[in-house]
Design a protein around this nucleic acid. Structure first.
Lengths: 207, 207, 207, 207
DNA sequence: TATGAATGAGCTTTCATTCAT
DNA sequence: AATGAATGAAAGCTCATTCAT
């Protein structure tokens, strides 16, 4: 009874914070960082502007928090996928599937995330892009490890450096996912990971 | 005499316009659309602000003109590459090479271009992204034709739909080019197109 | 029992009020009225902001109460000094001494007080300056009475109207005290009242 | 003709600047620095807010410029007075007269000036008060030189250190001037400098 | 025709004050 | 009775755009 009271407050705070971030996410992904005003975010999340500033001391901090939290969530989900049991191919298949689901379920977030990883918003905010690129690179090395291991076990050929394979593989996924994002009716990617894996696994030229 | 005068005027106008666009390009790619003011562009190009507005009726129009012209130039260069003589593989090799040279020589432009194609600054400007994506799609179909032709002549296997192969191939190039842009010392892409082609041509898994 | 409880409450209230005023005094004299927030005062005095508003219905009222109480205390101290036994010269000497001690012991308060009497923050708050000037004027008349009396008893010459003498005398003290406040190492005013009195007593020009 | 055009522009600029400063002076002296908004100053001087910012890059800079220019003008006027021909007494008389005229003609400016010299606005603006105090001190030393000289020539007695005499003398003037400022009907100071000089010259106590 | 001084809408942020708990 | 979360008016400042010269 006595320690549930603070907990309720806490939970309430977390909920409010999430509502603010959700409103910010919707607006930023729709209009871009500099075209969104703090007043808009306050209005959309139905808080007073002062309340918004109680949670985030500046617009920049709000954006940073949003990007970092989403990117962590995104990478955590993908990490879990490549830790799934099975051989290297199974892991890659799981990864493709998980990434597809992320794109399908969090398109706005994903757009924002790519804004930051693709030098796109360059220089909007000192350091943020580096932070996120570093996280991405760390993550890419984990995929590289899968290729490394696959090469060791003889499952894969060493057609390129494992890190490069990881980058290529990841961007291969992105190619399909953007195709699908832009034309969801025509491309049904997220349902069939093997379309992607095949391209990587089979050579275009008969050996 | 009477119709050479307007011609000289015309040429002068074109030159001025290009100086303005060049200044804008430098500033936009350095600082991003919203962090650049019309006054800065006027100052950098050494025209009065009023003169700038004589050429471009708004900041948005200036940006649109810049992006569209650069993207046209970029795609024209790549188009020329795939029209080079030779078989399908030679065309692809030329394409990889030309794209690499573009990245090397026009990094700023390229960044700006990808800002627009990668949904990065998405919706900074209504319609612009669609315009550019349409052009890109038209262009991708020309690459798809190469794969189609390669499949017909038996040089390539039909491991996927030709348009998808085109998208994958193009993004594969981008992967390498961004690797190189971010880390020019470590990755020496533009010099050796075959590294990229090999990945597409050889399968990761021994058949 | 029943009327001691409210009394204790009363005393508690007075103590709280004084803590609030003390915190406010420290902050106002350090940073100026408009650079101090009610939250700061609440935090420094360790009360909730709501509690602060229970005691003072607005920031303005809090400031007014502070200034008025401090000015009353200040003038009460000086009044006591000029009521000390002795002739007019002794009274003036006591006054100089008491004022010096006030400056030494309550520099922050004094600064704030002079902010109000010296038109300094003029009109930050309608009416407050008049209130305080009135009190000061009343007090100056009490000093004027000393000069009046001194002239009557033949101790002083009527070199000017007694009220004017009072004003001059008081400002003379202030001159020294500010010299000392700004440069405590060089000027040791509060210790020797006669330096000041001499200037008033001896003419600059040999008669 | 060709070099009058820029001159007219220049003159126009100076006039605008002065109108802005005049509006700011009126508002600052009426309401205090922090109670005046840049919009108010713009409105009162009948310029757009952007135009105001073209002349003064921040509110602080505007205030600083105002105070510094006024204080320079004020001290320059007083300097000229003490450079007038005549013996030390004549110089002091000129000083008293000049200061009285300044108070009469520029009461608002004077109030603002004293805000800064009397620690009143303390800490509103880092450095500004020091700047002005330094100028005042430099100036006081020039008055001290007059007393020094008067003592040397035997006109004055050494009843105190010349710098202290200067401070006392200056504050003596201020006493009268503030009396007059607050009660112009009763006190007719600026017309008769000798009332002030007499107090300093004649001792209160018959020698 | 080219200029750049002038404009003012709109941005981020602060803080006195209220009121449900 | 005491609390402090929530409010929103209002501040300083920027910059796309206009228009008299």
């Amino acid at each position: 009874m006595m320690n549930q009271n603070p907990t309720r407050r806490e939970r309430e705070k977390v909920r409010q914070r999430q509502e603010m971030l959700a409103a910010a996410l919707a607006l930023f992904s729709e209009k871009g960082y500099l075209n969104v005003s703090m007043h808009e975010i306050a209005a959309k999340s139905e808080f007073a502007i002062g309340t918004l500033y109680k949670f985030f001391s500046s617009k920049e901090e709000l954006y940073r928090a949003l990007i970092l939290e989403q990117s962590d969530r995104f990478l955590a989900t993908l990490s879990k996928a490549i830790e799934s049991p099975g051989d290297e191919i199974a892991k890659l298949r799981q990864y493709v599937k998980a990434k597809g689901e992320e794109f399908r379920d969090n398109a706005a977030t994903i757009r924002l995330y790519f804004t930051e990883t693709r030098g796109a918003s360059f220089n909007i905010m000192a350091g943020l892009d580096q932070d996120i690129r570093n996280r991405r690179e760390t993550f890419l090395h984990r995929i590289a490890d899968i290729f490394e291991s696959g090469i060791h076990t003889g499952r894969f050929q060493r057609i390129a450096d494992p890190y490069i394979l990881a980058v290529v593989f990841d961007n291969l996924c992105n190619s399909f996912l953007f195709l699908w994002l832009e034309n969801p009716d025509k491309y049904s990617y997220p349902e069939n990971p093997d379309i992607i894996l095949n391209i990587l696994f089979k050579g275009l030229i008969q050996p």
